[in-house]
């Protein structure tokens, strides 16, 4: 079943075409990669998916609904979770609090009067769900440390956990291995596989680490100069001469 269906997405800035009729689809529960050289339009495409930019043309539908006019924070409620290339965590909160805030946001009952009546305290079932996700990601040991004390690798896992609390059907990961060392990258790959298996959420992975992409995803889309130059199964795409020339650079 197709979960995310983007067709003919076009966006230009001041006369420069950043995206030119990009089509991309992700099935439910599938892991898909999106690669391309820097400046190819990956970030622009990402921002269009998330509603931070409005495309000039084309349609994006998610789970059968047209996303064109849906504001960013509502897309999260529809089931799109994301992480950030430059890590974005809430200063002064512990990992547990990060997950708890996301759980509250998912329930969408942040009414002021409830707070004023003292109904804003954490409820047992909310805490249980937080605990469950902490365990899934092996974050329990770090759960109550201040976020500033965590390493970049752990921080990325907290970001994934925060996104998971909203019960996403699709997780968008923006260069999750950027800045991680060898071991941290390996650990992250494992966690992603685990999450995909346990929570059955589809993953769209934007990444430069070719071995990581090859190990994780079944299908890959390749962007270059705002156009889709290849798409298909991972092995086929990485064997494609045009892709190797534009992205990996070992074919002259």
């Amino acid at each position: 079943m197709t979960l995310l269906d983007a067709r003919g997405v076009t966006k230009s800035f001041a006369g420069i075409t950043a995206l030119d009729g990009v089509a991309l689809d992700v099935d439910a529960g599938e892991m898909v990669g999106l690669i391309g050289p820097n400046g190819a339009g990956k970030t622009t495409f990402f921002n269009c998916l998330l509603g931070m930019l409005r495309p000039d043309g084309g349609t994006i539908s998610f789970d059968g609904k047209d996303l064109t006019r849906v504001p960013t924070h509502r897309r999260a409620r529809l089931g799109i979770g994301r992480t950030f290339q430059r890590i974005e965590l809430f200063a002064g909160m512990t990992p547990r609090e990060h997950l708890f805030v996301a759980e509250r946001a998912r329930r969408g009952d942040g009414r002021l009067w409830k707070d004023l009546l003292g109904l804003g305290r954490p409820k047992p079932d909310e805490l249980a769900r937080v605990e469950e996700t902490l365990e899934l990601l092996s974050l329990t040991a770090d759960a109550d440390r201040p976020i500033e004390a965590l390493s970049l690798g752990r921080g990325r896992v907290v970001e994934i956990g925060r996104a998971l609390m909203t019960n996403p059907k699709l997780l968008l990961l923006d260069e999750p291995s950027s800045g991680l060392d060898h071991n941290e990258t390996a650990e992250l790959s494992q966690i992603l596989q685990h999450v995909n298996g346990e929570r059955h959420c589809a993953i769209l992975l934007v990444e430069h680490d070719v071995p990581m992409v090859r190990a994780l995803v079944t299908r890959v889309f390749v962007l270059d100069f705002g156009r889709l130059i290849a798409s298909g199964s991972t092995n086929d795409v990485f064997a494609d001469a045009a892709v190797r020339k534009a992205y990996i650079g070992d074919v002259v």
Partner: peptide
Amino acid sequence: LVRGGTTGRFLDAVRGSQVAAASIG
């Protein structure tokens, strides 16, 4: 109560990172 309740937490989140807060709705 507001500080310890949902609104206070949401405000903490928005202050920490507005884009990340939007990403969880």
